[in-house]
Amino acid sequence: MTALIKLSHINYSYEKIPALHDISLEIKSGEFILLTGPNGCGKSTLFKLLNGLIFPSSGKYFFDGQPITPLSLKDNLTAKKFHKRIGYVFQNPDTQLFNPTVYDEVAFGPRQMAFTESATAARVTELLDFLKISHLKNRAPYHLSGGEKKKVSIAAVLALNPDVLMMDEPLNGLDEKSQIWIKDFISAFSAVGKTMLITNHERDLLNIKDSRIIQFNEQHQLV
């Protein structure tokens, strides 16, 4: 099986401060990847790069065989298709939710994809039921608890039905009950065969069956 994501000798620096050093990685479709490492080792930077938000200073990034470069993403249709296929759940849900109600937040993706309003409603209802947040649908996202915001941000991303789901430190700032829920969700979602990439400081905390663990060191390299 060819790699869905392929990184070849990637380097990236923030104003001369290295963030990623000689990263080479292949991820196959349906794989579950757990990225671990200390704070500031480059996990979030790698996620930004994989989402086409930043581009490597050297090295190559291929998604489904297509090179991801500033030039390729300059094409509006290519960029949209690429972003549709990768769902990115931010570490801080406060900076991901921008719609006035939970319903609008989850409906944003299907409406973008030109779903009819009834098809949008069906998809949103199914997701809200699945994540057990139907009772929040008319609430403003910024008034929710940390765990509820996280569920809404997951629902908002899942509404696009991405091929790859990336979650940056999904357990960060959550209570134990919410952490257990997130872990159950990750186990269930990886079981349907979608590609998943998760970052976490502690490798044991999110060590799910059949996951491939990739460890960063403090020199911003993969061990």
Binding site: K84, R123, E126, N161, I180, K183, S187, A188, A191, L205
Partner: peptide, 30 residues
């Protein structure tokens, strides 16, 4: 450090409640 273990029952329940379309790939043309 508290180890967060997945609860197999709950995880299984989530899987059965998961919308079917989440398991498929959309043929979406932007």
């Amino acid at each position: 450090m508290i180890q967060i273990k997945p609860s197999d029952d709950h995880s299984g329940k989530l899987l059965t409640n998961m919308p079917a379309w989440l398991g498929d790939n959309d043929d979406y043309q932007p």
